[in-house]
């Protein structure tokens, strides 16, 4: 299992692996938003939690079609499906690799983006915590979407249409944690709900992902 993770990380980090694209997108968004809504610190501080979560979500979305598409094209996916590893584990590892290469860097640079958007000081801890707890759900849900569309020609655009509605609860609770944190309110409830969705998604969605992957491979 660790062999698959190491291979995927190695592929992502080598030339053409697409590592850093999501990060660059996140940065560009943090630059474009003030250009669009104006430089007023008050306005930016108020919308910063939502923008940061939305940016992380869209950056995750960008790299979803890479999760299975390349392995499908070169036949690795067929070979993995016939290898002595459960497909449920394969999709979980794939989601983990996606999280490590796309979401984790976003979590790490998010305080910098918060700085650009005048995020109130009280909110930084909650920003990092909510992204850490929430992004695994984004990766797992995204892996499900990628597995659904793996053999399709118009997969890239379709996957956004399928996955974005599934991201709604995570976005709502994640942004709410940061927004409440920024106002100095208690964040326990949205944080608990956010973690609940993440744990539920991580526990159950790999079975659905493996199921649709099997359907797509036959």
């Amino acid at each position: 299992m660790s062999a698959l993770l190491i291979r995927d990380l190695r592929l992502a980090l080598r030339a053409g692996g697409g590592f850093g694209l999501g990060l660059a997108f996140f940065l560009i968004l943090a630059v474009l938003v003030p250009l669009g809504v104006g430089p007023d610190p008050g306005t930016l501080a108020r919308i910063a939690p939502g923008i940061l979560w939305l940016g992380a979500l869209l950056a995750c979305l960008l790299s979803l079609d890479r999760i299975f598409a390349l392995d499908f094209e070169d036949g690795s996916l067929d070979l993995l499906a016939t290898a002595p590893v459960p497909l449920e584990a394969v999709v979980t590892i794939k989601a983990l690799a996606h999280w490590l290469t796309t979401a984790l860097p976003l979590v790490l640079v998010s305080p910098l983006m918060g700085l650009l958007l005048f995020l109130p000081a009280e909110a930084y801890l909650w920003l990092i915590l909510s992204l850490t707890l929430g992004t695994p759900a984004l990766s797992v849900i995204g892996t499900f979407g990628a597995a659904l569309t793996v053999g399709l020609k118009r997969g890239g655009l379709l996957v956004s249409l399928l996955v974005l509605p599934l991201y709604i609860p995570t976005l709502v609770f994640g942004a709410e944690v940061v927004a409440r944190g920024a106002q100095g309110l208690t964040v326990a409830t949205p944080l608990a709900l956010l973690s609940g969705i993440t744990f539920g998604a991580v526990a159950l969605l790999p079975f659905a992902s493996a199921m649709v992957l099997r359907i797509n491979l036959r």
């Binding site: 291979r7 190695r10 592929l11 080598r14 030339a15 053409g16 692996g17 392995d71 094209e73 070169d74 036949g75 690795s76 996916l77 067929d78 070979l79 993995l80 016939t82």
Partner: peptide, 19 residues
């Protein structure tokens, strides 16, 4: 006990042969 090899070889172009 079955090993399958399809039309495509499942080779990753950015990995070495040994990898």
């Amino acid at each position: 006990i079955i090993a399958y090899a399809g039309h495509a070889d499942g080779i990753k172009s950015t990995l070495t042969v040994a990898e």
